[in-house]
Design a protein around this nucleic acid. Structure first.
Lengths: 338, 338
DNA sequence: TATTATAATGTAATCGATTACATAAAAATC
DNA sequence: GATTTTTATGTAATCGATTACATTATAATA
């Protein structure tokens, strides 16, 4: 049976207004009345109807995450699950819930976000998988949809974001390779235009400056699509003999696994001959052989922050953007003894 | 600006009832009126308020997926993402949306499902990660919550489910090992009581019968928790020397990766000395070395089926349970040349 | 043409919550 | 004790849709 606030009011012998007051602990209510109401709620097993709530208050507690149809990258990678887990941990026990809106359109289409917002299915959205100068951001602003961006797709940063320190990530990865003697680091970066790709490249360049190493643009390769993790394999395969390099930094552990396989298949010893550094520290990084040196990002924390920041924005509280620290996890793939 | 059905009615010069009729293509409406209404909808950019819809019709279009806090397994594994992608593909373009309800409680707690349903945040749920005789099923039945189970947790099967053919999966994996000369196959199964674990064991036993091989119960090992994929490594490490085995079947590719590492670390050649078969065919299976022989399940299709079946149930259409075929993908980890 | 049947549209109640405003009760002030 | 102020509670409108029922317009029949 599904009870309404009226049933609670009748059972407690008060008006619906009073019940509402108790339930939202607004206004003043006598301890005695409060107790009567709560007892009635308990007795009936009353659960508020969120459609009614949302209709009346014009406020939806859905936290929207729009997944584009044509994007494989994030969603197939552990990154995605961990991110959701983080959001979940923050949202768990609150009145908010995570809504996955499936976009019929391409990645840069905003209509799914807007529709979900206008339908009141969500009260705000998390913008995932953003590109440089993402066109969706101005649209969300225009329509006053509360939102938080994962990543920093534009320089003016006139929006709230959560991100990991990709500049540092790119830097410590490259530095580590320099420190163990590399001079020419092949950098297999994410897709061009992708928010994170730019920052990681910055870090890569910074490390060169710091170590006084000349940058060879031929060493910087962007994957075309973010869906194909076999890219790591193929890029390295086709680079061998074409470009001279003595170390590899790959923007993603799965691609790094492919890169390592390519080296192995070519009879090159990973670590001793060519050290490899990945990015993400996916669970499997410590299970492959050689185990993978990689940049660890606190993905779950980023998910948590995305959720809590968005809830803050939705409630008109002021929130701040956050950049999370990353660290290098050193394993066998950069060991000279390998 | 957010327009309501009233605005549309005014703009079109008709009543709200007529607008509603057009929008839900119920009843008869003149072509002319329909056109006027649709034009008004177009002009205003009207989007129906789903809270109001849901309140009035007592029908929520949220498809609930409850994620337990204490479960790492599914959510960290590619299985989870792929499953969601499948659901998404089915739901995309429809009026339904996927809601991830985060449970505060342990896996077998049903309250999160019920609460979400009674709040009208979801109109039905997908039951994931089920155990044998899962206690949640009778509760969902009792409260008349539309639901679909992923897996087959009980024998009476008095509910709708989608599942992959785990019996066949366990069987073809074991058979393949027998065919290439194994006599004692170590089986690292999922957690005891887990729906899939039972069926895969059945397949494992069936293969023994078929090949006339005696079953040694010592060879059957259940992982304790499903969260720790290092289990594969540790179980194999501690089994070497303790139990005699000449092949391994691991209920999961990530665990299989750990198992392979354990063999390598012990100086055992994977394939030639001890062949290994995994389960799932995760994307990385073809990127590790040796590449992994594994049982492929159509996870995305299972997700699709889960979504469409639930929508059918929610709409009172009759639906049927589905079992999806699995197949063996043969790679290097079972090659005797490895 | 008058009468009846049918089709198209409108009116108003309803879903379950919140909240502005009204009112009653209690406390504070004189 | 009468008056004012404060506090607690109730009444009723409202959010945006759907839909039973009423009404009007049109078509069919006598």
């Amino acid at each position: 049976m599904n009870f309404s606030i009226k049933d609670v009011a009748r059972t407690a012998g008060v008006s619906v207004a009073t019940v509402s007051r108790v339930l939202n602990n607004s206004d003043k209510v006598t301890e005695e009345t409060r107790w009567k109401v709560l007892r009635a709620v308990e007795t009936l097993g009353y659960v508020p109807n969120y459609s009614a709530k949302s209709l009346r208050t014009n406020f939806s507690r859905g936290i929207g995450l729009v997944i584009s149809h044509d994007v494989d990258y994030f969603i197939t990678f552990p990154y995605f699950s961990e991110f959701i887990r983080g959001m979940g941990q923050t949202l768990s026990g609150t009145d908010y819930h995570l809504v996955m809106v499936m976009s019929t359109d391409s990645r840069d289409d905003i209509s799914s976000h807007l529709r979900a917002f206008e339908r009141k299915v969500v009260g705000g959205v998390v913008l995932f998988d953003v590109m440089d100068n993402d066109k969706r951001i101005p649209v969300l602003k225009k329509y006053k949809v509360p939102f938080v961006v994962v990543g920093r797709p534009s320089l003016d940063e006139d929006y709230l974001y959560v991100d990991s320190d990709n500049v540092k990530g790119g830097m410590i990865a490259t530095e580590h390779l320099f420190k163990i003697g590399c001079k020419r680091v092949l950098f297999i970066n994410g897709p061009k235009g992708h928010s994170a790709s730019r920052y990681r490249l910055n870090g890569y360049l910074k490390a060169h400056k710091k170590f006084g190493v000349q940058v060879d643009k031929k060493l910087i390769i962007y994957v075309k699509s973010d869906s194909d993790m076999k890219n790591g394999y193929e890029i390295v395969k086709s680079s061998i003999g074409q470009i001279k390099f003595d170390g590899i930094f790959v923007s993603g552990d799965f691609m790094a696994t492919g890169a390592i396989k390519a080296l192995k298949d070519s009879g090159i010893r990973v670590g001793r001959d060519i050290p490899v550094v990945g990015f993400d520290d996916v669970p499997i990084a410590s299970m492959v052989s050689p185990t993978l040196t990689t940049v660890k990002q606190p993905i779950k924390d980023i998910g948590k922050a995305a959720a809590s920041t968005l809830v803050d924005v939705m409630n008109g509280r002021n929130a701040t953007s956050k950049v999370f620290d990353v660290s290098l996890v050193i394993r066998q793939s950069t060991s000279r003894e390998g």
